[in-house]
């Protein structure tokens, strides 16, 4: 199987704090990490390779320093890393990102399956995966929690819904976005880490892709961020300490009218 995993480098949003005085993001010491959901995509790609043979190419679009997340993916067992990076891509929204990544994947021939995390933790849009599938005109299955089987150019897949899951069959090539339930990502081994350090990362610029310039970056992005602001902090709560009986009574009094 020829597998492509699309990943994104994101700031570790769990480390992001708000400066209470200036009401701005404190980014000092915030590390860049692989988008947490993409780690499951990488693991699933590597597991499929281990099950069916083939190759896993991991691809990311971002600034030059995003190379780090490609190396980390290789340490988990991906075979090759592609960094799609160009000034022309800056300011891409999900439409332009999906387009650019689709063009890059097009350059990798005969892809059987593309795997993405269900969404990125910085933007939380969940739009780029389906965007890539649409640009490539291939079917997509989102929120995948299990790949049951792959045979005869078809994949049988379990897809999470609000109430449970659906079992669908899709023709390949296809794109899937995965949820956390699909696997437990491995910790990259020592040998994997050493190999990743030495691996050659391919770097593709706009000129290397068969691409329309006006569909890239800010120009190719319909959405504009018009305002960024910090949400008002939650007002300070009321604390009950001491006798549990009394605390419970007080709380029930405060809440009973809110419960329909």
């Amino acid at each position: 199987m020829n597998i492509v995993v699309c990943i994104k480098q994101v700031p570790d949003t769990t480390q992001v704090r708000i400066d209470p005085v200036t009401n701005t993001l404190i980014r000092e010491g915030v590390q860049s990490i692989i988008n947490p959901f993409d780690v499951y995509a990488i693991e699933e790609g590597v597991r499929l390779k281990e099950r069916f043979g083939g190759k896993v190419t991991v691809i990311t679009m971002g600034p030059p320093q995003a190379e780090a997340v490609l190396r980390e993916s290789i340490s988990m067992g991906c075979d090759e890393g592609v960094l799609v990076s160009d000034r022309a891509f800056a300011g891409s929204d999900t439409l332009a990102t999906g387009y650019t990544l689709a063009r890059a994947i097009n350059k990798i021939k005969d892809v059987d399956m593309i795997i993405c995390g269900k969404q990125a933790s910085d933007g939380d849009t969940a739009q780029v995966g389906p965007g890539i599938a649409t640009q490539l005109d291939i079917p997509q299955v989102t929120y995948v929690k299990k790949i049951e089987e792959i045979a005869n150019g078809k994949a049988k897949i379990e897809r999470m819904t609000e109430e449970g899951f659906e079992i669908v069959e899709t023709s390949m090539p296809c794109l899937i976005t995965v949820v956390k339930e699909i696997n437990e990502p491995r910790i990259p081994s020592l040998k994997g880490r050493m190999a990743a350090k030495k691996a050659v990362i391919l770097a593709w610029k706009a000129i290397d892709l068969d691409i329309e310039e006006n569909r890239l970056g800010l120009t190719g992005s319909p959405t504009w961020v018009s305002k960024i602001f910090t949400p008002p902090p939650r007002p300070k709560g009321q604390m009950f300490e001491g006798d549990p009986e009394e605390s419970a009574t007080n709380l029930v009094d405060l809440l009973k009218n809110h419960i329909g």
Partner: peptide
Amino acid sequence: PAFGGNIMATILS
């Protein structure tokens, strides 16, 4: 919300 709910963004098309 973006950045894990730490900031809000208003977006136009």
